[in-house]
């Protein structure tokens, strides 16, 4: 029986302007699984992901890898939970690709040779070796998304959370990305509305709408439940 790596109980979150974004969320994620979080835009998927490494502070209980988040273990947790944002321009903030991929390992205090080793390994994993000296601005969206994944992979996280990884990608780039995600061995949580990818990659799916979890179960039964999908605005 795989151990739980993420345990969320009774999570509620509202933005400062009073808008309730997450209501009464209960979710457990087990090691090694690939979980899809699907729902319409504005359902709270991104907000939920931001709670996984403490970017947003919760009013409820979030336990990551057995630990409740507090000031002391925040940095350690962030090394073990990698978050990949929807817009790669927000994630690539250094002048060169090498600097961006090295940012995480440097913050972990690795030696220069170990940093170099991590960078080369991460870029190879995403199929972007040789791009070290390129400027992020010159890359296509698909390349940027893969580099953004490399920037997180270089920290060797146990859990990876993706926010809309295939949005705006052309078919070829999308397939490359799906194949890449398939190869990654970490526990994966993917917030998306690309249902085809969900069917291919994820054994388990959670449906979220208006901040609440509507369903949580095996992907096949969820995606075959047209009534459920229609309620959540994911099917016509």
């Amino acid at each position: 029986m795989p151990e739980p790596v993420i345990e969320i109980e009774n999570l509620n979150f509202s933005y400062p302007d009073g808008r309730e974004v997450l209501k009464n969320i209960h979710l457990t994620v087990f090691r090694g699984e690939t979980l899809a979080i699907i729902g319409p835009n504005g359902a709270g998927k991104s907000t939920l992901l931001l709670h996984l490494n403490g970017i947003l502070h919760e009013n409820g209980s979030v336990r990551i890898l057995g630990e409740t988040l507090n000031d002391r273990n925040l940095r350690r947790i962030r090394a073990r939970v990698g978050l990949i944002f929807q817009n790669p321009d927000d994630q690539l903030f250094c002048p060169l690709v090498y600097d961006d991929v090295a940012f995480g390992p440097l913050n972990l205090g690795y030696s220069p040779s170990k940093v170099r080793e991590k960078v080369e390994k991460a870029l190879a994993e995403v199929g972007m070796s040789g791009f070290e000296q390129r400027a992020p601005h010159h890359l296509s969206l698909g390349e940027k998304k893969r580099i953004a994944i490399a920037t997180v992979l270089s920290m060797d996280p146990e859990i990876l959370a993706f926010d809309e990884p295939t949005s705006n990608l052309d078919p070829r780039a999308r397939w490359l990305l799906i194949n890449l995600l398939k190869r990654l061995p970490a526990t994966k949580i993917i917030a998306t509305h690309d249902l085809e990818m969900v069917r291919l990659l994820c054994e388990r799916t959670v449906v979220i709408d208006k901040g609440q979890i509507l369903a949580d179960g095996p992907t096949d039964s969820i995606l075959n439940n047209l009534e459920l999908l229609r309620t959540a605005g994911l099917a016509a």
Binding site: L50, N53, I55, R75, R78, A79, G82, L83, F85, N87, D89, D90, Q91, F93, D99, A102, F103, G104, L106, N107, L108, P112, V115, T151, V152, M155
Partner: peptide, 21 residues
């Protein structure tokens, strides 16, 4: 955007000290 970038930096362990190679 700067808030998003800051969140991305925090997600990768940034603690306020710029580290370079």
């Amino acid at each position: 955007r700067s808030e998003h970038v800051h969140a991305a930096m925090l997600s990768r362990g940034f603690d306020g000290t710029p580290r370079t190679i």
